[in-house]
């Protein structure tokens, strides 16, 4: 338990460091948000408007950096991430709140499902080494080396178009009002199918490959031979002895990929114009929308940290050797 507490302390420290860097980096960039807005409106702003913008962004007061830093923390704890330029005058928190469910829904679910299916398939393929199942390996090696945005582009070219079942962009039929009714959910599923399949295919292959290779390694371990000699059922040997041990390296890989859900699928969301965080980040970068970028980076950092923490916990549960006595 003390190990877990140490890890928690470590992650809290890392989170603090990340948030602090997140505070300082935009302040190191020359200019300020108001200047950026003035440039954006090509100078067509009255002095009063400029002044009111300074007030709005909280830049009118003559505060020291330390004071600003504490105020930033205060705002953060209230969930206030400032105002977005691109979606002005929506608060960044609301903008992220709009995008996050789509990203987590699409990429989160496919990442988890891809891991589960890939690991299960890798277990079986690795266990039946030397049979027809090995034919799957060159295919998965090939597929896993294709970047998924490219797979997405191919899918759009081949499968979408006039009269096709698959829409080429968006997350739901724009004619519908978002809500928990069957029509909207159905539309969401239909729009999500193609991007989901794209991510699933390419991420799954990677899991199959690594799990298969670990299974082959573990299958020659002494304890697996012992399990056979004990007359345990094939299933029990495969799952309880071989796969249970082969899984361990995959678990940390999985946790890392969880952390990249938010940041890593930017390209898929761009390709499919899927209204998630990735697309927002893309827009924010294009519009020099510092508050939004800052907010999204914060979410990415925190989700990587959370994923790492989950990996630590999973490892503690799965591998008794990492548990320290005390």
């Amino acid at each position: 338990m003390s190990y877990l507490l140490k890890r928690i302390a470590f992650y809290l420290f890392t989170a603090w460091a990340a948030i602090t860097i997140n505070f300082f980096v935009p302040r190191l960039i020359p200019g300020d948000p108001v200047q950026a807005l003035i440039t954006k409106s090509r100078g067509q702003m009255t002095t009063e408007a400029v002044q009111s913008l300074y007030v709005l962004f909280g830049l009118d007061k003559d505060e020291s950096v330390i004071e600003q830093y504490f105020r930033y923390w205060g705002q953060l704890l209230r969930g206030d991430l400032g105002l977005s330029f691109t979606f002005f005058p929506s608060p960044v928190a609301d903008v992220i709140g709009d995008g996050l469910p789509w990203t987590v829904g699409l990429v989160g679910i496919t990442t988890v499902v891809g891991f589960l299916i890939g690991t299960a398939a890798g277990t079986v393929v690795g266990w039946r080494r030397g049979s027809w199942a090995d034919l799957l390996i060159p295919v998965t090696t090939f597929v896993s080396s294709i970047p998924y945005f490219w797979l997405g582009l191919i899918a759009i070219t081949l499968l979408t178009g006039r009269g096709s079942f698959f829409p080429a962009s968006g997350a739901y039929d724009t004619g519908l009002v978002p809500g928990w009714d069957w029509e909207f959910i159905g539309s969401t599923l239909r729009y999500g199918l193609l991007p989901a399949a794209t991510i699933l295919i390419s991420s799954m292959s990677g899991w199959i490959l690594s799990m298969r290779n670990m299974m082959v390694t573990v299958a020659s371990e002494d304890y697996v031979t012992v399990a056979h000699a004990k007359g345990l059922s094939e299933r029990r040997v495969m799952v309880g002895y071989a796969a249970r041990n082969a899984l361990l390296p995959n678990v940390s890989g999985f946790a890392l990929s969880l952390g990249f859900i938010v940041g890593g699928t930017l390209l898929v969301e761009i390709v499919f114009s899927y209204p998630g965080l990735g697309l927002q980040l893309f827009q924010a970068v294009g519009a020099k929308d510092y508050p939004l970028m800052q907010g999204i980076f914060l979410i990415i950092t925190l989700s990587v940290l959370l994923a790492n923490f989950l990996a630590d916990v999973a490892y503690l549960v799965l591998d008794p050797r990492t548990r320290r006595e005390g």
Binding site: D222, Y223, G231, S233
Partner: peptide
């Protein structure tokens, strides 16, 4: 038959004392 035979009639103690036990089970 082999599965029933194994361990019930003929048990084996293997060479690798260190690796004969599954590290993740009690």
């Amino acid at each position: 038959e082999l599965r029933r035979f194994r361990w019930a009639e003929t048990a084996i103690v293997f060479q690798g004392a260190m690796n004969s036990l599954n590290p993740v089970h009690r």
